[in-house]
Design a protein around this nucleic acid. Structure first.
Length: 197
DNA sequence: GTAGTGATTTTCT
DNA sequence: GAAAATCACTACA
């Protein structure tokens, strides 16, 4: 593999059906120009949360203050606080008025590893520092302050990498009580950094 | 090696 | 007042 060409994914990427986006997002690179410096990582694990028919989707119970960003147009960040101590990062998908998003569960660090380690005092192994939604946000320094950012802006965005993606596998989602029968979790099976075996 | 549980606070009922 | 799209630690085999 010689030079890898990168380009920022446009708004249209996020407006496709959520399952398509979830599949396509595996192997992409997320770039975040944080106040601390630039950080980037290769996405290897995501979960889809789709609309009113998905019982595990935050938007299924109707629009609330917390999930209102999911009802907006695709291509924005949705960050929420959970279990009293962790944040989770999502990418909003599809059209305005349709609550859907993709939860970023795990990634492999590329740039800014020193910053990630600094943000995550408990982590020692760099190959596991982003292996979970809560850990990812901690390492990237993401909080609800970053909720609703435009993914086509300069601050945070995804890049397409012209390399053959790893083998993508679909499984049931993790950590939810309802909707487990839906195979909405996508992982790159060649990665060693997924959040759970 | 696997399994079980406490931490801690925002958000919604 | 209870639940929550999690993680790290402890206990035990």
């Amino acid at each position: 593999m010689t030079k890898s060409k990168l380009y920022k994914l446009p708004r249209s990427f996020y407006l496709k059906p959520t399952l398509e986006v979830a599949n396509d997002i595996i192997g992409k690179t997320i770039v975040y120009n944080s106040p601390q410096g630039k950080m980037s990582a290769r996405i290897v694990e995501v979960e889809a949360y789709i609309g009113m028919d998905d019982p595990a989707c935050h938007g299924a119970v109707g629009k609330t203050k917390r999930n209102s960003i999911m009802f907006g147009e695709g291509g924005y960040t949705y960050i929420y606080f959970i279990y009293g101590m962790y944040y989770c990062l999502n990418f909003v998908t599809e059209r305005a008025g349709y609550p859907s998003a993709i939860l970023l569960r795990s990634a492999e660090p590329i740039e800014g590893i020193d910053l990630m380690l600094k943000n995550s005092p408990n982590q020692k192994k760099t190959d596991k520092i982003l292996s979970g939604p809560g850990k990812f946000c901690k390492a990237f320094g993401l909080t609800t302050k970053q909720n609703g950012l435009d993914l086509t802006s300069k601050t945070i965005y995804l890049e397409k990498l012209f390399e053959s993606p790893g083998k993508i596998v679909r499984t049931e989602r993790i950590g939810i009580k309802k909707g487990k029968d839906l195979l909405y979790r996508f992982i790159d099976s060649s990665s060693q950094s997924i959040s759970k075996k």
